[in-house]
Design a protein around this nucleic acid. Structure first.
Lengths: 236, 236
DNA sequence: CCATGTGAAGGTTTTCACAGCT
DNA sequence: AGCTGTGAAAACCTTCACATGG
């Protein structure tokens, strides 16, 4: 295990904590929103509020990228936006394919936020006969069998899976085989992928169940507090 | 801050860590999948594999609920399923409303996983005139103005927001006002809610950007390793 | 004998609080 | 004078490794 490939201990180019990485896109969105309101600069406090975090966390997060603020003043919105976009790697667009053009796949294909935030949907794939030849969001639906060809031709490294759970692993295998190394999985299934391939999952029922857990607790607390006035709240 | 409301230090009824709560639904899904394959019992190792975590973590997580396994043997699938479902609070169904019946809202309404995992969509709401009177997934779309009435009548405490970002805060305010205390937010916007209201967010472009970050790093590493043979992989 | 359940160790993340720069 | 950037402390989460009990 080597230590740093020609980067001084302090230089901003290795080892951004995962928790920070997960928040950078949120900061970027907050900055975009400030820019749209013609706000040219902001304090860590203001940006933190816009991003829904506290300012100490925001400053610590930004410190991993470098020193892009001005002490006593704050941050230049455009400059910081660019630095974060560069760190994330969305200064140029990433080609993306979506496999599984059911209700969810169609919603994803139509989702404008995809294209406006550094991603370009280059193909929609579906295995079902009836989908062939249809066009969704201006993009033709192609047979699943074309996967490898498309991935190679368009240099795709990110794939979205929106097929039913039962088909998800097969799709993931085919994606990896074709050369994709990052997968966003909407199917409620655990995917096995080799090392070097990243998977992130979005699972709607899991999110609801987490809410249900806290909701149950609130109900239980309300019952208890017949003789206990304290109302503790949970929030994210 | 009090400590425990009549529960002994060891009794399974307070203080399940948030990280554990977020995994319980995953375990529940893995157990359901085992049950469907007629597997009546399993070891922590097997269940952990099915859930995509390591077995130590699984055992630690389950230990917060109580001792529902048998040493030397493993876990009874049905029994553990029930215990987890009870802990989460999904032994009975939760009524849910969806506000914003665009592409995504329609996909959510049609999503069978919602109804099969402890949730029942009791109403679809949309502010747009052209949506009124339409039916999605067998449920009539109603005007947004009916929100409070529906929440009260159906005792809804969980709401899903799938409107454009610009409208999200207003919808959240109306939900809170109507009595909803848990929100699943699909709009790419930070929501301000009072204490006691839970918000979870699902943001598609954020997930993609996190993948893009790691993808950029992989590319950078590949370039570096012209004179360095080590191939470190990242995976989730 | 075997797999669970769990203290204790090791990491990571968050928060604090203030030194340092503009 | 004020806000950033950051060590150090506290909180939280994961992993280890083994005592415990069926």
């Amino acid at each position: 295990m080597h230590t740093g490939e020609g980067s001084s201990a302090h230089d901003p180019h290795r080892d951004i904590p995962e928790a920070t990485v997960a928040r950078l896109p949120v900061y970027l969105r907050a900055l975009t929103s400030l820019a749209e309101r013609n706000i040219a600069s902001c304090s860590s406090e203001e940006l933190a509020t816009a991003a829904g975090v506290n300012s100490a966390k925001l400053r610590k997060d930004l410190s991993y990228l470098g020193s892009y603020g001005t002490r006593g003043v704050g941050y230049d919105v455009d400059y910081l936006s660019y630095q974060i976009a560069r760190e994330i790697g969305v200064t140029h667009d990433w080609p993306v394919i979506i496999v599984g053009i059911g209700n969810l796949g169609q919603a994803l294909a139509n989702f404008s936020g995809f294209s406006s935030r550094g991603f370009r949907t280059v193909a929609l794939l579906d295995a079902a006969e009836p989908m062939q030849g249809r066009t969704v969001a201006g993009i033709a639906v192609r047979p699943f069998a074309d996967l490898a060809e498309i991935v190679t031709a368009e240099q795709v490294s990110i794939g979205v899976i929106s097929v039913p759970a039962a088909a998800a692993q097969d799709v993931a295998d085919a994606m990896v085989e074709a050369g994709i190394s990052s997968i966003l999985n909407f199917a409620p299934a655990v995917l096995n992928v080799p090392d070097g391939v990243d998977v992130r999952k979005v699972d709607l029922s899991i999110e609801l169940q987490i809410l249900a857990y806290h909701e149950s607790r609130k109900a239980a607390e309300a019952e208890e507090s017949v003789d206990d006035g304290s109302g503790e709240g949970v929030s994210a």
